[in-house]
């Protein structure tokens, strides 16, 4: 299974994502420069975290018009697996591949900390190896992670099981206190209706190996490979 990590000017988690694929899955992985207009030959596209275009205008707003994004959008519409992490999530929102938008954190602070997440949907290609409702620990690092969508969209997300991760307490309670940034409904990650596009603010690539002190994030990468292997069969 071949992974592609998109590199925008200002991406800064690209090497971490690249390394996670190598270290956890030992699968082929390549960087894709944002000026490329093709994602031909890739089986999963990762939009990494960082500050593409310095977050000018809005986080992800300018990256969304990079040449590579047209190919990524087309790839996603054909059912290709796309995951956006942190800034990558913001790019997916701006590109319209996922519903909603990001606001400044309600504390107005940049938050760099471990968060606990409840796996609300363990039926996606990105989460299938977790148990439904399982609590995992994944770090966040963002200033604009306050997820917003209107009421109708939220209802739709809930009805279609598109809320994939919610911020929770270590015991798994989804409370306002466990919400680091003010996100509506404690949302930490959502997928599209088809389930092949995931956006999440927490960074699984930063906790994918034991040597990093936490390997909860490894399961996400393993799930992707397992889903792809099932598909190919």
């Amino acid at each position: 299974m071949k992974f592609g990590v998109v590199v925008f000017p200002g991406s800064n988690c690209d090497a971490d994502c690249f390394n996670a694929v190598k270290a956890v899955l030992d699968q082929p992985v390549e960087y894709i420069w944002h000026k490329s207009n093709s994602v031909e030959g890739f089986d999963c596209i990762i939009l990494p975290g960082g500050f593409s275009y310095g977050d000018y205008l809005r986080a992800g707003a300018i990256a969304r018009f990079s040449p590579v994004m047209e190919a990524v959008i087309e790839f996603a519409h054909r059912g290709g697996l796309v995951i956006g992490i942190c800034n990558g999530f913001q790019v997916l929102l701006e590109a319209g591949l996922l519903p909603g938008a990001m606001r400044r954190n309600d504390s107005l602070q940049f938050i760099c900390d471990d968060t606990y997440l409840k796996v609300e949907n363990a039926d996606t290609a990105f989460t299938a190896l977790w148990q439904p409702g399982q609590v995992i620990k994944i770090p966040v690092a963002h200033g604009d992670g306050n997820y917003y969508c209107d009421e109708n969209t939220l209802k739709e997300l809930q009805q279609n099981n598109q809320v994939v991760f919610r911020y929770c307490s270590p015991a798994g309670e989804v409370t306002a206190q466990a919400n680091p940034n003010g996100s509506i409904d404690n949302i930490a990650g959502v997928c599209n209706k088809q389930g092949n596009v995931l956006g999440m603010m927490p960074h699984p690539e930063r906790c994918a190996e034991k040597i990093l002190g936490n390997d909860d994030g490894a399961m996400l990468f393993k799930s992707i490979l397992a889903a792809w292997q099932r598909r190919v069969k």
Binding site: R58, A61, I62, L93, P99, A101, R103, Y148
Partner: peptide
């Protein structure tokens, strides 16, 4: 298209 995000 770009300058404002109509969602918010």
């Amino acid at each position: 298209k770009l300058l404002a995000n109509p969602v918010i």
